[in-house]
Design a protein around this nucleic acid. Sequence first.
DNA 1: CGTTGCTTTGATTGGTGTCAACTTATGTGG
DNA 2: CCACATAAGTTGACACCAATCAAAGCAACG
Lengths: 241, 241
Amino acid sequence: MTSTIDYDPYETLCHDCRLVESCLPYGLAKNELKQFATMVKSKPPILSDQYLYRQDDEGRSLYVVKTGSFRGFISSTDGAEQTIGFYLPGELMGFDAFQHGRFTSSSIALETSKVCELPLSQLNELCRLIPSLQTQMLRVLGKEIESDHNQILLLGHRSAKEKMAIFLLKLSHRYNALGFSKTEFNLTMKRQDIANFLGITNETVSRLLTELHQQGIIAINRRNIKINNMNALKVLVEDCY
Amino acid sequence: MTSTIDYDPYETLCHDCRLVESCLPYGLAKNELKQFATMVKSKPPILSDQYLYRQDDEGRSLYVVKTGSFRGFISSTDGAEQTIGFYLPGELMGFDAFQHGRFTSSSIALETSKVCELPLSQLNELCRLIPSLQTQMLRVLGKEIESDHNQILLLGHRSAKEKMAIFLLKLSHRYNALGFSKTEFNLTMKRQDIANFLGITNETVSRLLTELHQQGIIAINRRNIKINNMNALKVLVEDCY
DNA sequence: CGTTGCTTTGATTGGTGTCAACTTATGTGG
DNA sequence: CCACATAAGTTGACACCAATCAAAGCAACG
């Protein structure tokens, strides 16, 4: 499967990166950005289904998605999983290692993906030197927390249909923010992943997508989805966003 | 109703505070702690049902619970609420204002409570001066994120009974960490609050508590709860923790 | 004491999960 | 290139957990 997100085939430094506006160093002065860039470690691409990091691994870095997408999840001791989020380009992963230096979740690539690695030791040091980076750091942490809160809101008080609609709208919004179509995109995750993320079963996901398709609100073929009636989706949610 | 948590009737500085080991400045050297303490603003006690802060308010401070307890929640545009957490002494509130300088959740006192206020501007400055404070800051942020992830796990994949058991076990654990009994304590929140937090209805909460009572696993009278059989509760959860 | 808000209990309904069968896509080896 | 195995996705029948609606019990408080 080819990725819908593959606009950066060559290695670039931060100041050339088209993600810079949504990434951590947003708002830094030119010389600061240059300094920031020296810290960034590049890694070989992560293939589909490969782990970026595993729960309980030592966590010494943050990671930013450069291309591709990831799925973050927690495993219970019995092997049951809960997907806590999907990560698209420009989004950060690995905050959960801040507490004890070990990841409390795992991250796995949904397709061939590239990341920028930010070693925490250097990031901390740089935050002291560059106040606006410190501010920006707290800002993305706040964003992460707010995003988690929204997920709690979604899981706690929404019907399966509302959850599905919210999921699609949010994905649309995020793709749009990255400069892609907000009405047509490829789902990089399996039905099962969506189901797990929303706290429902894959059968229910399948049924709901079929239903939305039959109502003409979306058109879906395998992983390709087209939103025909954005408003109808919003009506389903009514007031969540 | 009298609080179960009322061991600090007099104003104290950080170095005298019995919460210091679980609070933000944990691990700071004596002189650093002194410096930290000068930043702490004391506030008049918050009475029951009073807001500490409201969603969309400007957020320029973090707050630490000194005595009492709070309920944090998000409101949708239609007025529906989702409780995102309960806060006991030593726990921090207000991280969600990091993103845009405004709270994305509200916090309300469940009983007469006291908080320490930490102005963000000074906290940021101090983090630059005291590296171990910076580390500690990231640690509590990591803890907050992990806690949110656990809540997502709970809401996504647990039956009502499991949710209830997890809620009680977690509360027991937190009270114990504060030096209180882990088998007997008062619930400072209403059934409705618990229900909302767990994503179920208050009727279900009531039924489950009654059921656990009849099975002899707990003894509950209004807000007072006694856990008679901790193991039985853990068996209900099996593998979550 | 009467009002009020919180809690409990009961009867009924419906949304999702569960189980199972089938279809479709992908990949492998002969 | 085909036969086969495997995984992903769809669809249907049925069961059950928890929501909903309704009403009564119970503590707090003026």
